[in-house]
Computed example of a mutant assay.
Amino acid sequence: MFPLYDENQTRITPYLTYGLIGMNILVFLHEYSLSNEQLELFFKLYAVVPRELTTNFAGEWTTLFTSQFLHGGWWHLISNMLFLWVFGNNIEDRLGHVKYLIFYLACGALAALCQWFIGMNSGIPSLGASGAISGVLGAYLIRFPQARIMSLVFLGFFVTTIRIPAMILIGIFFLQNVISGLASLQVAANMSVETGGVAYWAHIGGFVFGIILAPLFGLFRREY
């Protein structure tokens, strides 16, 4: 199930949403041009490495922001940018360009801290725009609970499009992350080695902080 577009009209051009998508694509193309050794060093410098953040927060705090523009593969990038494309424009329209950018980056940084809190001594890099985008989804849910999203649905060999209430689509996203996040804690508790995978707690944290912060940024009043 993949969102294609929403039914709400915006009154301003979402320049920042387009710009964020463009920056993520450009950074990923740079990643793609690197050798494995260079990419490993690139991630070490600009992704959040929890162990490094724990021991040297003053020198590593900028990675809470730079990590938001890194992605681990084509699918990671495409899925994130699709959600940002569909949901970001209306949140930018409601917050205004400047507040939207601050909100987006703040959600991403707080989401990264949530993931860091779960595994402070992990040496596995944490990266991606998912935490920031989860904040956008949280804001969208409380601002447009009755909206419907045109979505692409795969039914075996058949592909169709249906209009799904935003509350259901985003609710499924959140519940999946909560269930997977709790499962990941159980796995980690039963293992003596680090495990990689999806940063579920960054998704959850970003979503919750999006709900909390968006009204403070003026979600329920329009700015131009």
Rank of each mutant, 00 (worst) to 15 (best):
F83D: 01
G88D: 00
I91H: 02
E92G: 03
R94T: 01
H97S: 12
V98M: 06
K99Q: 08
Y100Q: 07
L101S: 06
L101N: 04
I102L: 07
F103W: 13
Y104A: 02
A106F: 01
Q115N: 08
W116T: 00
F117R: 10
F117H: 09
F117Y: 09
I118R: 06
G119T: 14
M120C: 04
I124Y: 12
P125Y: 02
A129L: 10
A129C: 06
S130C: 06
S130V: 05
G131D: 01
S134D: 08
S134W: 01
V136D: 01
V136I: 13
L137G: 11
G138L: 06
A139V: 10
A139N: 12
A139R: 02
L141Y: 14
R143V: 00
Q146T: 07
R148P: 04
I149Q: 01
S151L: 14
L152K: 09
L152Q: 10
L152W: 11
G156E: 13
G156D: 15
F158Q: 11
F158W: 15
T160W: 09
T161L: 15
T161E: 11
I162Y: 15
I164S: 04
P165Y: 06
P165Q: 04
L169C: 05
L169P: 05
F173L: 14
F173I: 03
S180R: 12
G181W: 03
G181V: 02
L182V: 15
A183S: 12
L185H: 15
L185I: 11
Q186N: 13
Q186F: 09
V187Y: 06
A189Y: 11
S192R: 13
E194S: 12
G197E: 11
A199L: 09
Y200R: 11
W201P: 01
A202G: 14
A202V: 11
A202P: 10
I204P: 00
I204W: 03
G205E: 10
F207I: 10
F209T: 00
